[in-house]
């Protein structure tokens, strides 16, 4: 079972270069260095500061056993706990990133991200099955340049939508994104239009699209396909936003309310169908697929 692999995967320690592309401050470098040495054995929970042995954390699907904090997953780990064993067949793996704007430093950052991650871009796409229900699946990866959507990510997502359209298999997209791939300028922004237009055709054909929002999903991804699912699930505690909290704080110069832009906040305001714990997402998807199929055959 794929689940058995979880946590034994070839994880790489988060390195500096990767974080530069997220919109987060970098004031914890020293702490990072110190932590690196202990990395192999234990992890400190970001939320409750509990020291958790890595083995235990992995067994618990990277969720803090004490407070329930959901650590961010790589796309491969997400896949491994979501789809049936041996069911994943990747497509669009040959779609790679160019440097259309000749943007200063982009090539280096890309190379670094490729070196540090098992995958080649911030999303993987393929056909798979959940409890034997066939699906098309795309999983984004925050560890690859902050999950930012450039041309290649937009192209792969669009191909996933198109694959779902032609194969008539339901589409499941796990989103996570820190924002636009700024190094691709307007071509990056246009991926919002491209993917949304493709999703419209999917809806028109009557194909199910389940969007799963994971921590964090923000910017152009939220303002395009991630918000266009027939059903939108949000992983517990996930930050889901159009504008990130830092930008909003800067704009309004006020303290943000408790729990603002968290999955539970979105549920309260009617923006998502369900908030789901990590361990229940696969079952939730299976249930939806099962009921959906029954409806078709009725």
């Amino acid at each position: 079972m794929l689940k058995d692999w979880f946590g034994k995967s070839k994880y790489v320690t988060v390195k500096k270069g990767e974080k530069e592309d997220t919109k987060e401050p970098e004031d914890k470098r020293e702490e990072k260095q110190k932590q690196k040495e202990d990395d192999q054995l234990w992890t400190k929970c970001k939320e409750c500061e509990e020291i958790i042995f890595n083995k235990k954390l992995a067994q618990n699907l990277m969720v803090c056993p004490k407070c329930g904090y959901h650590f961010r997953l790589t796309a491969l780990d997400r896949l491994s706990i979501t789809v049936d064993e041996n069911s994943f067949e990747e497509f669009a793996e040959d779609v790679d990133t160019g440097d259309p704007l000749d943007f200063p430093g982009y090539q280096d950052k890309l190379e670094k991200a490729k070196r540090e991650n098992t995958i080649n871009e911030a999303v993987i796409t393929g056909e798979a099955a959940i409890e034997e229900y066939p699906i098309v699946i795309a999983v984004m990866d925050f560890y690859f340049m902050g999950g930012s959507m450039g041309s290649a990510v937009g192209e792969k997502i669009t191909r996933a939508v198109e694959k779902s359209h032609t194969s008539e298999k339901p589409l499941v997209i796990f989103s996570t994104a820190g924002g636009a791939r700024m190094q691709e300028g307007m071509l990056s922004l246009m991926q919002m239009a491209k993917t949304s237009a493709a999703v419209r055709r999917l809806h028109e054909k009557g194909i199910l699209f389940i969007s799963v929002l994971t921590d964090p999903t923000s910017g152009g991804v939220t303002a395009s396909y991630a918000s266009l699912g027939d059903i939108i699930l949000a992983e517990q505690g996930a930050l889901i936003a159009f504008a990130g909290p830092r930008v909003i704080k800067q704009t309004i110069s006020k303290k943000l309310p408790e729990g603002f832009q968290r999955a539970e906040f979105l549920l309260e305001h009617g923006m998502v169908d369900r908030v789901v714990e990590r361990k229940n997402i696969r079952d939730n998807l299976a249930s939806i697929l099962k009921i959906h199929r029954t409806g078709e055959e009725f």
Partner: peptide, 8 residues
């Protein structure tokens, strides 16, 4: 080695 985000 686990991919970690506790330091981030």
């Amino acid at each position: 080695s686990l991919k970690r985000e506790n330091i981030q």
